[in-house]
Computed example of a mutant assay.
Amino acid sequence: MKKHAVLVFISSVLMSLFVFSRSDMQPMHAWNRAFADVSLLYLAVIILLGPLSRIFTSIRKLIPWRRTVGIWAALTAIAHVLIIFNGWIEWKFERLFFIFTPVGGDWIIHPGFALANLIGIIGLVYFLLLLATSNNKSKILLGKKAWKYVQSKATTLYLLVVLHTVYFLFLHFTDHSNWLRIPFIILVSFILLFQIVGFIFFVKRDKRK
């Protein structure tokens, strides 16, 4: 419970900062993106803990936090989706793949927009799967190997989230400036760098054994 209390506090602070940074947007869009940003940050922490624990042994004590952080990454992602469904597409699922053209006065399918949202839906399914199995009962039910296999899919989830984010940060509504573009590039590069370095450390330690 203490871990969840800490994550509630951190989430509240991060959400407030992200919403405040988008004070020029409609509240619905500001909150929607803020939840998505927090979810991405938590997912990045989960991915980073692996390679960092191989490089710095002191980081290993933080590994038990991965499950709790993963739960909050999923919860904030779900909140992100619920805001979109309730406040934007009004529970009309087809609007995730079509955009309205004021000139033609009609809804038309947009390939990039549709693909990005499809990737987002697949990512949500992954999130729900990880959330449903992030408990000891699932570990016993599935067996240790199967449970580890399911949980290892966090990397796949991360890639899906990155692809989904890339579209909406750099390709969709490019006329609207977004201060998160550069931090996002730095974060992704940082994760890639430490994954490579972590792999090198793993290979060296494996050879020593």
Rank of each mutant, 00 (worst) to 15 (best):
F127Q: 03
S138G: 06
L163A: 14
K145R: 11
V150W: 05
I108V: 14
V161T: 11
T101S: 13
P102S: 07
W147Y: 07
L124N: 04
L193P: 02
I182M: 06
F127M: 08
G123A: 13
D106F: 13
L141A: 10
S138M: 14
G112Q: 07
L130Q: 08
S138R: 11
I186W: 05
F173I: 06
L160D: 04
L180S: 09
G120I: 10
L160M: 06
A114P: 03
A154D: 14
I108P: 01
P183Q: 08
G105C: 13
F173M: 08
L131V: 08
A114K: 07
W107T: 00
F170R: 05
Y126Q: 10
V161K: 11
Y149F: 15
V150N: 12
W179T: 08
I140P: 09
T165E: 02
Y126T: 04
V162G: 05
V166Q: 01
V161R: 11
S189N: 03
Q195D: 06
F113V: 04
V188H: 10
Y126S: 06
F190H: 03
F194H: 05
H172I: 07
K153R: 15
R181Y: 02
S177I: 01
A132P: 03
H172Q: 10
I121W: 10
I119T: 10
Q151G: 10
W107R: 02
A116V: 00
L187S: 05
L118P: 03
S134K: 08
N136K: 15
L159T: 05
H164G: 00
K145C: 02
H172F: 15
F190Q: 07
L129E: 05
F170W: 05
K137N: 14
V188S: 04
L192R: 03
W147P: 01
L115I: 13
I109P: 11
L130K: 12
G105T: 14
A116Y: 00
V162T: 02
F184M: 04
F190W: 07
L129A: 15
S152M: 02
I140H: 13
L128T: 06
T174F: 13
A146I: 13
T133D: 10
P111H: 12
D106M: 15
K153V: 07
W107D: 03
K144V: 08
F190V: 13
